[in-house]
Design a protein around this nucleic acid. Structure first.
Lengths: 232, 232
DNA sequence: TTGAAATCTGTGGTCTAACCACACTGTAAT
DNA sequence: ATTACAGTGTGGTTAGACCACAGATTTCAA
């Protein structure tokens, strides 16, 4: 077993045992190296992997943001991984979109009315009406979809859904340039968002799921990304 | 931007541009370091991250298995990431199970009859009948579920499904120890597998989805892992 | 001629020791 | 009291060395 894997194992055990919790700090790299009797290089390689997994964040200097801190950002980490695999052509964009439809439909159908995430979603819609440019609109759009997914109360689905969107974010960003009339599209998207949120708040999960599926598939279809047909 | 991120960016571009494809070899670490004008350490940190993402595999020595080659194993990579986050208590096991039910039900419903994956699934079931011990049974079980998921033809769903199972593999392994009568459980699981495969091959996707959901939820329920109730 | 042993070459894996930039902390000079 | 400055500890980066490994090549003896 390679040295850095040993370090990883040790840190994972600290997490499993609860000796290291969210917001907690890892020992300094030099201290860990001495404690585990390995070189600082190996410690750093392990930390890099954890950072790529969204389990820790490394900060220089001293004070609040300094040191290596345990965080919980599986979404961005999974997103990076998926993005790389899309780059290798091993994961087709169509499959990403299809999976996103699957997860978001499920989440919309099971969204719990009254949870804070839905209130946040409503606020985001208001902000989107006043979005000055495409980029800020898309950023708010991303947050809206994540908020909607969170309303279902399954953190794994939320994380995966966010990662799927993140994996093809650049891709989607370029696609908006292909759209003939952004203003029209923007208006349509806003209306669809309102309809989705209304269906959710009206406890009509089935309707919400249908609307979400149509919303996502519609966007990528307009933008020129193929998506497999839904099941009969 | 940190140095190793620069290296990552460069490699990702090579992948996106198609200059680096599946099975291809990265330049040696020393060569890359010189080419990008960075230290070998930084190159290695980037390679470690890619390795953790399941994008490359590093091999020492010379010959076939040597060097750093591009692979495509998103499943195991996502699994490791999820496992770590489960260790931090940020991702509940129940959410993992629930998501697994979601993905596998969807896959079972949309499985394409006649694809090679289903034939492999059938073979695996025969092998499971002759499995000598629990561990080999569980290993075959894992492969069966993956094969079933692959039959739906969505590589993202397959990868995610495999990763979910991998994330709680150790967990599930311990749980089997809690079961009072493994032989009885084993027989039940085998029968359920056959029923699922039969439903799929009979083009009864709805039935297959139901059976899969019950199969997975049943196992974890027996083993003592709570799962959220299905939607009304 | 043949076969086995030694050497060569290039790969990733590891380690040491040094220096840097950064951000806070305490102290000293104003 | 305020300001300026040195001190301390963090991660970030680098250079250079050595190791184990595995295949390719060469050497040399049977």
């Amino acid at each position: 077993m390679r040295t850095h894997e040993l370090v990883l194992q040790w840190i994972e055990k600290q997490l499993s045992d609860g000796d290291l919790t969210l917001g907690g700090r890892l020992p300094g790299e030099r201290a860990m190296a001495e404690q585990l009797q390995v070189s600082r290089t190996s410690v750093r390689e392990a930390v890099r992997i954890l950072e790529a997994m969204g389990v820790v964040r490394a900060g220089v200097g001293s004070g609040k943001d300094a040191g290596t801190v345990v965080i919980a950002e599986p979404g961005s980490a999974l997103g990076s991984t998926l993005r790389l695999h899309v780059a290798t052509r091993h994961l087709p964009v169509a499959d990403i979109v299809e999976t996103r439809v699957l997860l978001e439909s499920w989440a919309a159908e099971r969204a719990h009315v009254g949870v804070p995430a839905l209130e946040e979603a409503a606020e985001l819609l208001d902000q989107m009406d006043a979005a000055p440019d495409i980029d800020s609109f898309l950023a708010l759009d991303a947050r809206f979809h994540v908020a909607l997914a969170q309303a279902a109360g399954n953190s794994v689905v939320s994380a995966m859904m966010a990662s799927l969107r993140g994996a093809i974010e650049n891709y989607a960003g370029e696609l908006t340039g292909n759209l003939p009339d952004w203003n029209a599209t923007c208006s349509r998207l806003r209306a669809e968002h309102r309809a989705i949120l209304a269906a959710v708040n009206n406890n009509d999960g089935g309707k919400a799921a249908e609307l979400v599926a149509a919303h996502i598939q519609g966007f990528y279809k307009k933008a020129g990304v193929g998506s497999n047909p839904p099941p009969k």
